[in-house]
Design a binder for these strands. Structure first.
Lengths: 249, 249
DNA sequence: CCGCATTTGTTCGTATGTATT
DNA sequence: TAATACATACGAACAAATGCG
């Protein structure tokens, strides 16, 4: 035996999406109708739809229906000078961000080590969300020393960008020192904030930014919707332009 | 309502694993027994087990049983001089590799561009598999120009390492030029080779290696078991040592 | 090598809960 | 409130893979 029934249903729907017969944003028939269409039970149809939802091709909303996902794929360049807004704008995507919460708290072991502080020193923890073309693509958790940036909280809540605040503090330029990337299952709240399927994985990017004297400015952790972003490191722009778009299938 | 029944079952099993009551490699009770244990239907138990299998905490084998996954977590450093074997040995992990297939074929558009060849020029395509402590962690697909490395195929099949073959060709040192990382669902054959759950995602790492004259040597694509590896880029080793192990939950 | 028991995989049916319109 | 649509859950049957005698 080759493919199972639910896999064939999954592939047929995926093909319809790839062929454009199911356009981004379009609504699928209800589960009951899909059962009739494919001559299958509800279990098989749900499993197929679930697999596509985890891949990010479909979005299922209880009480409303199932829709073809239309979120864009972002190519996110991570280099020594990566900036969120510059990054997206260079791809013709409209960036946006919002501050979800900001609070002063004692530095944890990891944060203290990254910022070269003592454990328990006050740090400002800022939780943000980034959008590309109005679609949420990342959750950011950043830590700054309160001693070094006393009015960071007020400024960020007022909507000012970090680059501007750094400039006011006399930091004209800053660099990314280290980056760690791994994948894991999304926490329920993360899936909620990214409006993605709870079973879909996220990419976690941990980094430390330093100033031109190599002193740490910020430690941050980014949670990214794994199917909406592709990271590039250390790329010669000329070579990078040659890469094909990814095969989503 | 808070958690659903299947989520509670999932968390109870996960807790048992975290607490060490279910040791790595241990076998879980059969589905029927788990149903009795938790007072639930097979549906709920299977959904809980499936979620943990996708996370990489459990491994389910048809006809045999369900086992606690005991694969190690690898910290893989990607820098200008990253080498597979050096990388793993520095963590006290025993590296191993095997060549699955090697064949000469015409260069595709992407490969030709990366290697600065013409489309259709003969390239050697080598498929390998990497192990850490006998657990498969990566599939490698690499492309070399046949014109530049005429006897690469024979050498690799004979078990020689690429670093040695490069040295014979007069390449004393080589560097990573560009790296792209993204996540996607594993193809069935990939899941098979990595012995991981078919619904678990993989991390794809595309890179180009160049020699000291900046001429491309190899283009390669690595497929990694997303839950068994963590990548670090451009890291100052001193700073990197300070990072905590990841929270798997 | 065959047959049988065990264990997980797939599929169907059915009922009830929850969110949206 | 009622209708619609997806979510969860139980039960049952058969298929497929494994391991043992």
């Amino acid at each position: 035996m080759g493919l199972q029934q639910w896999q064939m249903i999954r592939d047929r729907i995926a093909d319809d999406i790839a062929a454009g017969e199911l356009a981004p944003g379009a609504r699928l028939p209800t589960e009951t109708k899909l059962c009739q269409l494919f001559g299958a039970g509800r279990h098989s149809v749900r499993r197929a739809v679930s697999a596509l939802a985890i891949e990010g091709k479909l979005r299922v909303e209880q009480g409303r229906g199932t829709f073809v996902e239309d979120a864009p794929l972002i190519d996110y360049h991570i280099g020594r000078r990566a900036r969120f807004r510059q990054n997206l704008r260079s791809q013709g995507v409209v960036p946006a961000g919002e501050v979800i919460s900001a609070q002063v708290m004692p530095a944890s072991t990891r944060v203290a080590r990254a910022l070269q502080l003592n454990e328990g020193d006050p740090v400002l923890r800022i939780l943000t969300r980034g959008f590309a073309d109005s679609v949420p693509i990342s959750i950011g958790l950043s830590f700054h020393s309160v001693a070094r940036f006393p009015d960071m909280a007020a400024q960020r809540q007022a909507g000012r960008h970090v680059t501007e605040i750094y400039r006011d503090a006399g930091i004209g330029d800053y660099f990314r020192k280290s980056t760690t990337v791994f994948a894991r299952r999304a926490e329920p709240e993360e899936a909620e904030l990214l409006s993605q399927h709870p079973d879909q994985p996220v990419l976690v990017v941990r980094k430390t930014d330093v100033d031109s004297q190599d002193l740490p400015i910020a430690y941050s952790e980014g949670i990214w919707a794994a199917d909406r972003v592709r990271f590039t490191f250390d790329v010669d722009p000329v070579t990078a332009a040659g890469f094909d778009p990814p095969n989503q299938a």
